[in-house]
Design a protein around this nucleic acid. Structure first.
Lengths: 132, 132
DNA sequence: GTTCATGCAAATCGTTTGCACAATG
DNA sequence: CATTGTGCAAACGATTTGCATGAAC
């Protein structure tokens, strides 16, 4: 067994975290890469992914699994629900309150031990629905 | 523009559908492939994926996007929620009623037009929680 | 100076696709 | 016979990893 790593600071990781905290667009790894490339002109996708993984592990960033194609990342780790626009593909935060009590409801109906849940909504966003 | 295809019957596709209807384990493409390989000894993953895609398009099968790694498929197309065991990885159906009214609630709180939602629960399944 | 992070390229994994041939209607 | 389905292998896209070098502590 190897010891758990004690992470050292890295300019790249700090910028990735800042970037994620500055936006609410739930960026992809390439989006982050493209944004940071001018700043770190030798940046590689490996570095982006490695740091995203560390940030998720540290609980500073959330990974959003949307479909099976690619991941998005969220600098907002407070529990909240997402809306996926089926037309433009954007991912938006919902002002809907997170209902933690529903976890207990599942426990009552089953023999499972529920730790969390997530809820995703699908449809047309603000912009796309007004352009119909 | 090409015309929409008029699907012909295929023994492979019929077996895939039956297989999915006979199980509630939400199989992956490889699982289906492995099951059907003895029956069709020249079966290829391409055929499995192509047929799964057609079945989804026909509304006979649902694709379950879990995480970003691989897909699972569900022969039960009636709306229902899923439970993902974080220990053994199994995916289970929940006897929780699907709350369609929550879509309208999102519409009231936003300017979006919500067509559907999905809810996934995470924790320990029956078997895994009793073995602690 | 030991450990962790980086950049690069190659590898991996699930899935998709082009093509020649077989099966369906 | 016109069209769709199959098997095979190659291609794909997102992500991961091995390795030598560089930065952090």
């Amino acid at each position: 067994m190897t010891d758990k790593p004690r992470y050292k600071r890295s300019r790249q990781r700090e910028r990735i975290l800042n970037l994620l905290r500055e936006t609410d667009t739930h960026p992809t790894a390439v989006w982050i890469y493209d944004r940071l490339k001018p700043e770190f002109h030798n940046l590689s996708m490996g570095t982006v992914y490695r740091n995203l993984h560390i940030l998720v592990e540290q609980g500073l960033v959330a990974k959003i699994a949307c479909g099976s194609t690619f991941d998005r990342f969220d600098g907002n780790v407070k529990p909240h629900y997402h809306f996926f626009c089926e037309k433009c593909g954007s991912v938006l935060d919902l002002p809907l309150e997170v209902d933690e009590s529903i976890n207990r409801k599942v426990d009552e109906l089953t023999n499972f031990v529920t730790r969390s849940h997530k809820m995703d909504f699908f449809g047309l966003c603000d912009q796309c629905s007004s352009r119909l």
